[in-house]
Computed example of a mutant assay.
Amino acid sequence: MAGTANVYEFDEEQSSTELRYVFLSVGKKIVSKIVVYTCTHQFENRDVYNLGFGDYFDEDDNIEDRVQTNNGDAYVVFNTVLATIPLFFEKFSDSMLMVQGSDSRQGFAAECKRTCLKNCKTSCRKSNQRISIYRNFVEKHFLTLSQDYWFLGGFRGLRYQIITEIYIPGRKYDAILMFRK
Score class of each variant (00 low, 15 high):
T17I: 11
P169K: 11
R130W: 06
V67T: 13
H41L: 10
V76W: 02
Q42G: 06
S127F: 15
S15C: 08
Y56A: 06
N70E: 12
V36I: 01
I30C: 06
I63H: 00
L158R: 09
I168G: 07
I166K: 15
C116I: 02
R156G: 04
N70A: 13
G52F: 04
S102F: 09
S15F: 01
Y160L: 07
V31G: 01
R171V: 11
L152C: 06
S32T: 05
G54Y: 00
A175Q: 07
A83I: 03
A175M: 04
V7A: 05
Y56D: 05
Y167W: 01
T4S: 14
D94E: 12
N45D: 13
N45P: 02
G101D: 04
Y21F: 12
T164G: 05
Y75K: 15
S127L: 14
G72A: 07
E9C: 04
N45K: 15
N45Y: 09
Y75D: 12
T122D: 14
S15G: 01
K121T: 14
S123G: 07
N6Q: 12
E18R: 14
N70F: 15
E59W: 14
D60K: 09
A109W: 08
D55V: 14
L143Q: 12
F53G: 03
Q14V: 13
Y8G: 02
T122N: 14
D103G: 00
T80M: 01
Y173W: 04
S102K: 09
R130M: 11
E44A: 09
E12P: 01
T38A: 10
R20Q: 05
N128G: 03
T69C: 09
D55G: 09
G157I: 08
T40S: 13
W150D: 15
L145S: 05
N62M: 15
Q14R: 14
R125N: 15
V35R: 03
D11E: 15
D103F: 08
Y8C: 08
R159G: 06
G101M: 02
R114F: 07
L51D: 03
V138D: 00
T122R: 12
D55P: 05
L51H: 08
M178A: 08
F53L: 02
G157L: 05
I162T: 10
A2L: 00
